[in-house]
């Protein structure tokens, strides 16, 4: 792949990350504000966002810190919360099998929920030789928004907490909208069945407060029900 093509693909990935940036910024600002409130310095808040780069776990982490929870409990809780990430790599990997190992290790760092969803919906439309640069561009945008939002929240402090409640929920709605818009063109045939089953399982689980477990169950049950259903229908018609 030529350098020019790689730069173009990276820039295209960066543009594709705009929706994620829009959604990440207010959440990262909220994290910065929360970190500031429990007494973390700006540098410490940035370090947590830069090293962990996983929204829900970061909030859980600092809220458990604030209550002096033992380190092992904090580590295990965030491990459970992030367990869903093991599912993303195997689904993205087949699209990037010609990329060098070090690039795959680099791309894995930014494989958040939103980056995974955006890549799943769009990476197929990118020429195979440009896919890694495109994904790295997408992740660069998401990571930059996450870090700059954290910095804004940690430095803005009290001023932001008065403005944020009014705009943050609306801006944060960019993320569910992004998931919907990525999903809509894929919804046909057995993909539709898999999506309905997975959404139902995850939604019911979330209602009862079992977020991670329900996501893992949704990832298994959705495809399984759709596949078994389509094979059963084939047998009935033949």
């Amino acid at each position: 792949m030529g350098l020019t093509n790689a730069v173009k693909a990276w820039a295209s990935g960066l543009r594709a990350s705009l929706a994620i940036m829009l959604g990440y910024t207010p959440i990262a600002i909220a994290f910065g504000v929360a970190a500031n409130e429990i007494g973390l310095s700006v540098q410490a808040a940035l370090l947590v966002s830069g090293v962990v780069f996983a929204g829900a776990s970061q909030f859980v982490m600092i809220s458990l810190w604030a209550t002096s929870t033992p380190a092992l409990v904090i580590a295990l809780t965030t491990l459970l919360l992030n367990l869903r990430h093991v599912l993303y790599g195997p689904l993205i990997a087949p699209h990037l099998r010609h990329s060098p190992g070090w690039q795959r290790l680099l791309a894995a760092f930014g494989l958040t929920d939103e980056a995974f969803a955006a890549a799943t919906g769009r990476v197929d439309r990118v020429p195979e030789s440009d896919r890694m640069a495109w994904l790295l561009g997408l992740e660069t945008g998401a990571y930059s928004a996450w870090l700059s939002g954290t910095w804004l929240g940690a430095t803005g402090g009290a001023a932001l907490t008065t403005v944020l409640p009014a705009i943050a929920p609306a801006l944060a709605f960019a993320l569910p909208t992004l998931f919907l818009v990525l999903l809509l063109p894929l919804l046909q045939g057995r993909v539709l069945i898999a999506a309905i089953v997975a959404a139902s399982v995850a939604g019911i689980g979330q209602f009862w407060g079992m977020t991670t477990a329900s996501l893992l169950m949704a990832a298994v049950l959705g495809p399984l029900v759709a596949l078994v259903g389509s094979r059963w229908r084939c047998q009935q018609t033949s």
């Binding site: 969803a117 949704a218 959705g222």
Partner: peptide
């Protein structure tokens, strides 16, 4: 797609 749908539901 099932995972995207599940993330949407969450």
């Amino acid at each position: 797609p099932a995972l995207i749908a599940a993330l949407l539901a969450l």
